[in-house]
Write a protein that binds this DNA or RNA. Structure first.
Length: 565
RNA sequence: GGGCCGGUAGCUCAGUUCGGCAGAGCGUCUGGCUUUUAACCAGACGGUCGGGGGUUCAAGUCCCUCCCGGCCCGCCA
């Protein structure tokens, strides 16, 4: 459960005092066990130690505000790995994700994502329509893109689509639908019957709880906003009476309409601190990961409320650290967010899944500019699974985590190093890509077609990365002659190479001739290649040059080698 | 102010549960490879484990304290 609706509204980050709980639970599973190489195994141990009923329920959830970004995926992926471990151990597992869509829209998001996961500004949609709906549940607000049933449905669809992209089977649940179907009735009645106990427990965490506090927020029958002022409760009738008063959100006020009315338990919601434990009860949740922001607020009070108000055992908790994006906090207003869909243009799904398999307790940076390094890490992790890395702890981790990261375990898969893939991406010619990879020894005559196909998928992604980052791998043939300063002997060698190319030679011959030409002119081979790279790419390095030149228009190559154009 | 999590090589990170030689990959440098070109092989360089103090035969690991970053301690989620 992460709020993370809009990181700007301050919620976030974490901490863990959850420790106490985790430690306490751990005691029951005996001590002296060797430390698990994969955190999901440790969590699974804790869950099993509680002897849960089948199916084991794993939950995540988020309030559907703003953009469904990569950070939200902690909610789904952390739970997923635990679910998979438990399934492997023979348990039936149900992974659910609540869209906490009865929450009111409290603030206009600055960024939204369209149906394709593309981020757009508020200016691209009907912002006025959103503004008029401040204070109303997300499910009662029209989809700004005019496609889904509601703002909430749009957002949930995005998350579901992303989960599908990562091949995670998760059941999406709408909080509003659960209220409307009466699933909350019993627990709302229970909480309101024991409102005194509820107040007492919660007041241990929130100083503002007074005698008049009623743990239920009805929806105003007139203006449709979530209200906070309940004047009386009739548990037997299943109703509350309320006055629609102003609601303070940060330093802004959402005006109430003054309407006085009656609402059933299905026409409102529990405040978050109660709603979360109520979800645990209704859904029978055994495990729930949450962001560090909940670790010291919602979790301790939620666990307390679960035990002492609802009289249920709270789920096994797990706090995950937030990650930063390019060194900065995820922030939709600052535009510092990426979506799963965007990242899948740059990374294979398994590489993205790997990111979430890493230690959740470690704050880490998702640095798009160094994705190459991250992909290298993944490749190494993959090799470690197959026993190819001399690193005990990595291998132990890979043995457990890798099978849950990839869709299928296939040892003969070929991974082109990401930066090399980026280099291949400079040409759209598939045959040339294969030829260059073959020359570097990644493919041979026995390489099956499927392995080549899969390996080449990375090329398009690495190419997209190079373009997105506009980094040194963003090779472009220079349309006009770059401004280069060359030594006389290098120039003479280039002229001679031009003569050779002009006679119509293929790539391999050009490559071989480059060595010969350099030697004849007493030029360092390295210097000669560098001159070639500068002429064609305005970069000191590049792909295997001869083969590449062999694919280009001969006239163009000859002219460029002669520094004519 | 109180609390929680994080801080290990230039970069990305293991290692901290339960004290036992300071580690890996990448990058850098050097050498080799008779096509070395974002390739391979070998080797080297690289660290006050955030600082300080303490316990111990022994501390990245345990204790105290301080610094830095993030978060919680209002509301909301």
């Amino acid at each position: 459960m992460t709020e993370e609706s809009d990181p700007d509204d301050g919620a976030n980050a974490g901490a863990l005092d959850v420790e106490t709980d985790i430690d306490a639970d751990a005691e029951s599973d005996g001590s002296g066990e060797p430390r698990r190489a994969f955190w999901a195994d440790e969590v699974a141990d804790e869950i099993e130690a509680r002897d849960p009923e089948e199916p084991i329920v794993i939950k995540g959830g988020v309030s559907p505000s703003g953009v469904a970004h990569l950070g939200n995926f902690n909610e789904i992926m952390r739970g997923y790995f635990v679910a998979e471990v438990l399934r492997e151990r023979g348990h039936e597992v149900r992974q659910v994700f609540t869209s906490d869509d009865r929450d009111p829209l409290r603030k206009l998001p600055r960024k939204l994502a369209d149906v394709d996961g593309k981020i757009v500004g508020l200016g691209d949609v009907d912002a006025g329509a959103l503004g008029r709906n401040l204070g109303r549940p997300y499910t009662d607000i029209p989809d700004p893109f005019g496609e889904s049933e509601s703002y909430a449905a749009h957002f949930a669809a995005l998350l579901k689509a992303d989960a599908d992209r990562l091949d995670v089977p998760v059941e999406m649940l709408s909080n509003t639908e659960m209220y409307e179907a009466g699933e909350f009735d019993e627990v709302v009645a229970h909480v309101l019957e024991r409102a005194d106990v509820a107040r007492e427990v919660l007041s241990g965490y929130q100083s503002k709880i007074d005698e008049d506090y009623v743990p239920f927020n009805p929806i105003c029958g007139d203006c449709g906003k979530i209200t906070e002022t309940v004047t009386s409760v009739d548990v037997d009738a299943g109703t509350v009476e309320y006055v629609c008063t102003d609601m303070t959100v940060g330093d802004e006020t959402i005006e109430g309409c003054g309407h006085e009315g009656t609402a059933t338990f299905r026409e409102g919601k529990l405040p978050w601190r109660f709603e979360w434990p109520a979800q645990w009860q209704i859904l029978g949740v055994d495990f729930e990961p949450f962001g560090k922001d909940h670790a010291e607020g919602s979790w301790p009070s939620g666990a307390d409320i679960a035990r002492n108000v609802l009289e249920i055992e709270p789920p096994v908790p797990m706090v995950y650290e937030w990650f930063t994006l390019n060194g900065e906090a995820l922030s939709s207003s600052a535009g510092n967010i990426v979506t799963v869909a965007e990242m899948l243009e740059l990374l294979e799904p398994e590489v993205l899944r790997y990111f979430f398999a890493l230690n959740p307790r470690k704050a880490r940076d998702f640095d798009v500019s160094r994705l190459d390094q991250f992909v290298d890490d993944f490749d190494r992790f993959e090799r470690a699974y197959f026993g190819g890395v001399d690193d005990e702890s990595l291998t132990a981790f890979a043995e457990r985590a890798y099978p849950f990261v990839v869709d299928e375990i296939r040892e003969d898969r070929i991974r082109l190093p990401y930066t090399f893939a980026a280099v291949l991406g400079m040409t759209d010619n598939r045959d040339l890509r294969i030829e260059m990879a073959r020359n570097e020894g990644y493919f041979d005559d026995d390489t099956p077609e499927w392995a080549i196909e899969e390996a080449l998928e990375r090329v398009d992604r690495a190419r997209a990365w190079a373009e997105r980052e506009d980094n040194e791998y963003n090779y472009r043939i220079q349309e006009s002659l770059p401004d280069v300063d060359l030594d006389d002997d290098v120039e003479a060698a280039l002229d001679e190479l031009a003569d050779f190319v002009e006679t119509g030679q293929d790539g391999e011959e050009i490559q071989g001739e480059m060595y010969e030409t350099a030697r004849r002119h007493d030029v360092e081979v390295g210097d000669f290649f560098e001159a070639g790279y500068l002429l064609f790419f305005d970069q000191p390095q590049g792909p295997r040059l001869g083969e590449f030149l062999g694919e280009l228009d001969t006239e163009f190559v000859v002219a460029r080698l002669r520094r004519k154009s």
